[in-house]
């Protein structure tokens, strides 16, 4: 395995827990936390998708600029869409956008390399990106956040910016093979605290941290042939 080029904001807090590591999108990330990862995922699994490449942009001209780069933008504020290639585009508020590539995608790199025009402002993204799944995930969310997650139906394409365990997060719901699951992003500097807090609460519910191997298609979503698997083999 080549040396990782990117460091996860969760690396320091995960290093004493991970049983096995892999490299995804150039970032060292836990492949497994133990033999019971899959069982934890069924109840309340906390996955780490910080390795996904992402970019941010804001400003009155941001939507048109992204459209010119071939990136579709959601028409409503606080909503998201998936492009045909699996790229997730989230509209945060009125004029800010978060673009997260599907595995192997290049939109984030193209955005970072492009020169923005007037009234377009790049937003550096160093998020901790988490995934919460399992039958007891709603219970976990109720214990850590005052927001009513029933309002985030997967087919509604809505996202929310709220506070979880005291940390500002962006969160949305997605459909998965075992029912709805939740993706959330927070500032990387708060990521270790939020991850440790969620893992502790999930532990009380029979779940816990889940490595990339057990996440399977949840980590790749629209693209099951995830390139990160090649790095693991």
């Amino acid at each position: 395995m080549n040396a990782p080029l990117r460091i996860s904001p969760l690396h320091d807090v995960q290093v004493s827990h991970a049983a096995r590591w892999t490299q995804a999108e150039g970032m060292q990330t836990p492949a497994s936390f133990g033999a019971d990862d899959a069982a934890k995922l069924v109840l309340a699994g906390i996955g780490d998708l910080s390795f996904r490449r992402r970019a941010g942009v804001k400003g009155a001209g941001a939507a048109n600029w992204l459209n010119a780069l071939g990136i579709a933008t959601p028409p409503r504020h606080n909503s998201f869409l998936h492009m045909d290639d699996g790229t997730l585009v989230a509209r945060l508020g009125t004029t800010e956008y978060l673009i997260e590539d599907a595995p192997g995608g290049t939109h984030a790199d193209r955005i970072s390399a492009a020169t923005p025009g007037e009234r377009i402002y790049p937003v550096p993204r160093f998020d901790a990106a988490l995934l919460i799944a399992g039958t007891r995930a709603p219970e976990l969310l109720r214990q850590t956040c005052a927001f009513d997650f029933d309002r985030l139906l997967p087919d509604g394409q809505a996202l929310a910016m709220t506070s979880m365990a005291g940390v500002g997060i962006t969160v949305l719901a997605l459909d998965g093979p075992a029912g709805p699951h939740f993706r959330l992003w927070c500032d990387g500097t708060w990521g270790g605290y939020l991850w440790a807090t969620l893992v502790e609460v999930a532990g009380d519910l029979g779940g816990g941290a889940v490595g990339l191997d057990a996440l399977g298609s949840l980590a790749g979503q629209h693209n099951d042939a995830s390139p990160w698997r090649h790095a693991n083999n």
Partner: peptide, 17 residues
């Protein structure tokens, strides 16, 4: 719980403001 309504994000606990 004390609540406030953000014009963009809706009604939330006052601790978010």
């Amino acid at each position: 719980m004390k609540l406030m309504t953000c014009p963009i994000n809706g009604t939330r606990p006052i601790s978010e403001f």
